[in-house]
């Protein structure tokens, strides 16, 4: 069936995006699997975490004990990075929308937020598991978890805002504005929770920077793998949206010719 080119969705280029997307997802999963296997079987533990000052966590006083981070690091951090990247990209689309006022940017912003939400939830779950392993408790108000929790709330708020506005133009405009504010707020949140010491919110410094090649390779595999999976999902969602919009357009044209 020939595709009718719809202006609103910008389906002018004829790259086989659907194929690319599926390939991306498969490749991404493959890379992520490599990441996992390597991490669990070969890579040494990440030289773990060090506390800035003594903190009371889970009933025991923890000081500068070298905490060994779980292998979940190889999953958690890539997922976290990718999720944040999607929120940033969503904010970029939001800026483009406000500048150009074309509906396609609004659609892309929404979809980036959707994929971002998926990854943020994955980050939260993996982060929670990590916390359980490290501290023995299910939740700690440490900077990263807190910031990610806030980020989750911001993305959910984005969708609730969208649901509350009927007029499509206003909806697009307001959600774009909110997306920009959310993207600004998340780093601020991280910085502030990090810079202000607190007994309940221990500032956990992680020495992730100097990764040996043995650890770096699975880590990078993980990042690229996750990014590809995310991109693939995004692209597939976009295709579904485009098809839905085409159906709408055809329906409308049909109604008009009949009327």
């Amino acid at each position: 069936m020939t595709k009718t080119s719809s202006d609103a969705m910008g389906t002018r280029r004829r790259l086989p995006w659907e194929t690319i997307a599926i390939v991306a997802v498969i490749l991404g999963c493959a890379l992520t699997t490599v990441d996992f296997l390597w991490a669990f079987l070969r890579a040494p533990m990440v030289a773990g975490a060090r506390l800035e000052e003594p903190a009371l966590i889970g009933g025991t006083v923890v000081t500068t004990k070298m905490l060994f981070s779980q292998k979940i690091f190889y999953f958690h951090v890539p997922v976290a990075i990718v999720s944040f990247a999607f929120v940033i990209v969503a904010a970029v689309y939001a800026v483009l929308f406000l500048a150009r006022r074309s509906e396609r940017y609004d659609v892309r912003c929404r979809l980036c937020m959707q994929v971002g939400l998926i990854f943020i939830i994955a980050t939260m779950i993996s982060g929670d598991l990590w916390t359980r392993h490290d501290w023995g408790v299910w939740w700690v108000w440490e900077p990263r978890l807190t910031t990610y929790f806030i980020l989750t709330l911001l993305v959910i708020a984005y969708f609730i805002l969208r649901a509350a506005i009927d007029d499509p133009e206003r909806r697009a405009r307001f959600s774009a504005v909110f997306a920009i504010i959310a993207a600004i707020d998340a780093p601020i949140s991280f910085m502030i929770t990090r810079l202000i010491p607190s007994s309940i919110h221990p500032v956990v410094l992680r020495s992730d920077s100097g990764l040996s090649p043995d650890m770096l390779i699975p880590f990078l595999c993980g990042i690229f793998g996750m990014a590809l999976v995310g991109f693939g999902i995004y692209r597939l969602r976009l295709r579904i949206e485009e098809q839905a919009a085409e159906v709408e357009q055809l329906k409308r044209e049909f109604e008009q010719t009949v009327a």
């Binding site: 806030i150 709330l153 707020d185 601020i188 949140s189």
Partner: peptide, 14 residues
Amino acid sequence: AILLIPVVFPLLYA
């Protein structure tokens, strides 16, 4: 409330 509280969280914290 849904929009404001997450955005204002850092300020509140400080």
